[in-house]
Design a protein around this nucleic acid. Structure first.
Length: 843
DNA sequence: ATAGGGTTAG
């Protein structure tokens, strides 16, 4: 800053020190400034000297002290700096510590923490007051770590902290969630006999709550000599923020019993968790309390919190009533209303409110509101609205806001195409961890796991400080490994998780269990499950499903029973996992019993998915007619997937009459996807009715449904090699085909005969056999045999279900090569060893 | 007071 500007700035002090000419009090910074408007041109013609007494050194410290007081009060930085400069240049003041302390205070009040610190460090012996001021400055503005550091230095210097020091440094600990430091400071406060001071104990309470140590917080609270509403509110909000609904409500009741009346802050702290718990009855009674006490009158915060609570409890009528009755609404109010409609699946109203917000509310929709509306677009696959919001984001410049951009990215990843999402991702000006995580999981959800791993590699090599791989990222990456059955990648992810201390995160472990199971390593999956510190419902569901796809249904059932004794209630997904496990292991009667128990004992209303499992269970077990009757007795109309399960079973058991009947039902519903066409066509082929099979194929083509090509892949030394049927694109194609020919000679010698009923077309036997030879899984296994070491287990993954001939062929391949081969198809695992497969004879 | 990325089943 030029000194001329400083000269000008010095003018006001004189005025300030004079009696109030304007007869006005200076209450705030803004009034102070408005009373002294800056002149439009730099007042170089009014040099400082004009205001200096004839002998500068004769100005005593008192005058500067008074000027500095004004600087502190009105945050006049430039003026303060000038005084600082003068004090430095005149050694006369060098020993005037109180003046130098004022300099530090001045810098703090002007928000110049670094300058304050420099001045502070120059002082030989700062007073306790100044230590406190400096610690407070860090505790309020950050960096919070500095506050703790300074506190430590204070102790090292031999200064006793007082009742002001503790609250400040504790506030910094809260912000850092630095529990260890907090506990140490608690000890110091105890020793200093200040633990029970109102401010210290309130700060301790707050620190423990922010660090999630509710028990310690409660202990501090109990010992507080006077518990005011503020302390009670702190406790309520602590429980609420940590998701402890029961304790929060209990605390509210206790508070009232001891004569403390909840105020708006209490209500606003409590309501979010009431909404989360969907505790509508409690919510209503809180609402009634608000009406009785009239604390909802014209209070935006209380009303918005009430509205949000009703929205989260899916009680839109009451939410809307509050919304309509509010005379003043802010952005949060509108967003909460939109969020409520979104949660209940009412897109039209959600969008309507959003438009109203822009039109009537004369509000600018901020990043948070847009995140909510974009989530609505994603949930309802409303791509068009999403694009409109994209426009709005571009126009308003909010696209530069990472949160808003990430919401948009996630919308594209969920409802758009992977290409759109990737294009948008590449164009994002700022990317952070969330952006990367969103695109990775988006790719996986759209079936492009390879792309996901590519993005992850980019992410890992990025040097940006905003990008660090966290638990949520890994939860996106691990399923990519599961999809590809890329065990090496999965193991690397596991290593990363261990080395970065993420093993305590249940969701990460759940993803790992799933990954190991889908990569054929049920043993490793179980080890993760057994060693994880805390198992939630998803953990149990995952391990039950894991044994299910390995055909170990009995283990699934016994885990289900263990889940109960571990004190976790099974949910609807648990039963889907359990029933499909029974189905894959042929445990028909057990499955039936659990389906009944689910409704009677566990009071779970079966969803479409449960019926799919049951039809699959009955159908695979050969009880085709029972399956048909089961569908007819369903309480709601069966969808394509339920009939598809039965059709699949008809194919396995070669029941053509029922198959036709079922396919008629499917066509009545209108085919979704291509599955039913393929299954029906294969059913005809399997029973030798090739012309019908061909007709189905033609009908499928005519209606524009393409069959997704069968594809198999295998991971060799960390690289995934993929094959489609008859593939000759692989660089080692010729040796693969040669290997396959060799294998066939040996397999035929052992008794293998091609099962041509699986071939799709009405062609000569020999030609059919030829088509079967080059099914993708056979190519993959030939390649794997060429590449992998002698005794290694081979894992092949296929996107569709394995055909009967390949299933049979794999038994002979395992026998001929004396290997264990695992084949994971769209449905389950097949382990081939010494000429047999662990799965029951469904083919 | 609203709040971006996340695991299981079919």
């Amino acid at each position: 800053m030029l000194s001329s500007t400083c000269c000008y700035n010095l003018i006001p002090y004189r005025t300030l020190l004079l009696p109030r000419r304007h007869g006005a009090q200076f209450h705030t910074k803004s009034t102070a400034r408005s009373l002294f408007p800056r002149p439009s041109r730099p007042p170089v013609h009014r040099p400082l000297k004009q205001f200096q007494p004839p002998q500068f050194a004769a100005v005593d410290g008192n005058a500067y002290t008074k000027i500095l007081d004004s600087c502190i009060r009105f945050k006049l930085l430039e003026d303060g700096k000038e005084i600082h400069r003068r004090i430095i240049s005149h050694r006369y003041f060098a020993g005037n510590y109180s003046l130098l302390e004022k300099i530090v205070q001045m810098y703090i009040s002007c928000g110049e923490i670094e300058s304050a610190r420099l001045a502070f460090d120059d002082l030989p012996q700062p007073s306790v007051f100044l230590w406190n001021a400096m610690i407070r400055a860090y505790a309020w503005n950050g960096p919070f770590g500095r506050a703790v550091e300074l506190y430590q230095r204070m102790l090292d210097t031999g200064i006793e902290p007082n009742k002001f020091t503790f609250p400040f440094v504790l506030k910094a600990c809260s912000a850092l969630e630095a529990l260890a430091d907090g506990i140490l400071i608690h000890e110091h406060a105890k020793k200093a006999g200040l633990e029970l001071d109102v401010y210290v104990s309130t700060a301790l309470l707050d620190m423990y709550l922010k660090c999630g140590c509710l028990e310690d917080a409660h202990e501090v609270f109990c010992r507080m000599p006077q518990k005011d509403v503020v302390a009670w509110n702190a406790l309520v909000s602590g429980y609420a923020l940590n998701g402890r609904y029961q304790e929060a409500v209990h605390c509210l009741l206790q508070m009232q019993r001891t004569g403390n009346i909840p105020n708006p802050s209490t209500i606003v702290a409590l309501l979010p968790i009431v909404g989360q718990a969907k505790a509508l009855i409690q919510g209503k009674s809180i609402h009634a309390f608000c009406i009785r006490r009239r604390i909802d009158k014209d209070d935006v915060l209380v009303n918005t919190a009430l509205l949000d609570m009703y929205g989260k409890s899916e009680c839109l009528v009451l939410a809307r009533r509050i919304f309509d009755s509010m005379s003043f609404r802010n952005e949060v109010t509108w967003s909460a209303m939109i969020g409520g409609y979104t949660l209940c699946g009412r897109m039209a109203e959600a969008l309507q409110i959003f438009r109203m917000m822009l039109r009537e509310g004369s509000l600018f929709a901020g990043p948070t509101s847009l995140a909510i509306i974009l989530r609505a677009c994603a949930n309802f696959s409303d791509f068009e609205s999403g694009r409109l919001i994209h426009n709005y984001l571009v126009k308003s410049g909010l696209l530069l806001h990472v949160t808003a951009a990430n919401s948009l990215l996630s919308m594209y990843a969920k409802v758009g195409t992977v290409e759109d999402a990737i294009r948008f991702f590449d164009e994002m000006s700022v990317k952070d961890t969330v952006s990367y995580s969103a695109i990775i999981s988006g790719c996986v959800k759209n079936g492009n796991a390879e792309e996901a791993l590519d993005v992850f590699r980019d992410m890992a090599s990025s040097s940006s400080p905003c990008i660090d791989i966290d638990a949520a990222t890994m939860i996106g990456v691990i399923p990519a490994c599961s999809h590809l059955a890329a065990l090496q990648h999965g193991k690397c992810s596991h290593a990363y998780i261990i080395s970065h201390g993420l093993t305590s995160d249940s969701s990460v472990c759940n993803a790992l269990i799933d990954m190991y199971a889908k990569c054929g390593r049920i043993d490793a999956a179980r080890r993760v499950f057994d060693t994880m510190p805390k198992r939630d419902t998803v953990s149990w569901n995952t391990i039950i499903a894991a044994y299910g796809i390995h055909g170990l249904g009995d283990e699934s059932v016994s885990l289900f029973l263990k889940m109960e004794s571990a004190g976790l209630a099974p949910d609807d997904v648990t039963f889907i996992c359990l029933l499909s496990a029974c189905s894959h292991s042929g445990l028909v009667s057990k499955g039936k019993r659990w389906f009944l128990a689910m409704q009677e004992t566990y009071k779970i209303v079966p969803r479409m998915e449960h019926f799919i499992c049951m039809v699959d269970l009955l159908g695979r077990g050969g009880l085709l007619n029972e399956g048909y009757g089961f569908i007819e007795r369903m309480p709601f109309e069966a969808d394509v997937r339920v009939w598809g399960a039965l059709l699949g079973a008809c194919r396995i058991h070669k029941n053509i009459e029922l198959g036709e009947e079922v396919s008629r039902m499917i066509h009545k519903l209108g085919p979704e996807g291509t599955g039913s066409f393929v299954v029906l066509s294969n059913l005809y082929s399997a029973t030798g009715r090739f012309s019908e099979a061909a007709q189905v194929r033609i009908a499928q083509k005519a209606k524009g449904y393409a069959k997704s090509p069968g594809c198999s892949w295998v991971e060799i030394a960390g690289v995934v090699h993929a094959f489609v049927g008859g593939d000759r694109s692989h660089p080692q194609s010729s040796s693969i085909y040669r290997k396959l020919e060799e294998l066939f000679v040996e397999m035929r010698r052992l008794g293998y005969r091609a099962d041509t009923s699986c071939a799709l077309h009405d062609v000569e036997e020999e030609e059919k056999e030829h088509a079967l030879v080059y099914h993708s899984e056979k190519l993959a296994v030939a390649f794997a045999l060429l590449q992998s070491g002698d005794r290694q287990t081979i894992l092949i993954t296929k996107n569709l279900r394995v055909c009967g001939d390949c299933h049979n062929a794999f038994k002979y391949i395992a026998l001929a090569t004396n290997r264990t081969i695992t084949l994971r198809d769209a449905n389950r695992f097949h382990h081939f060893k010494e000429g047999v497969c662990n799965c029951r004879d469904f083919w």
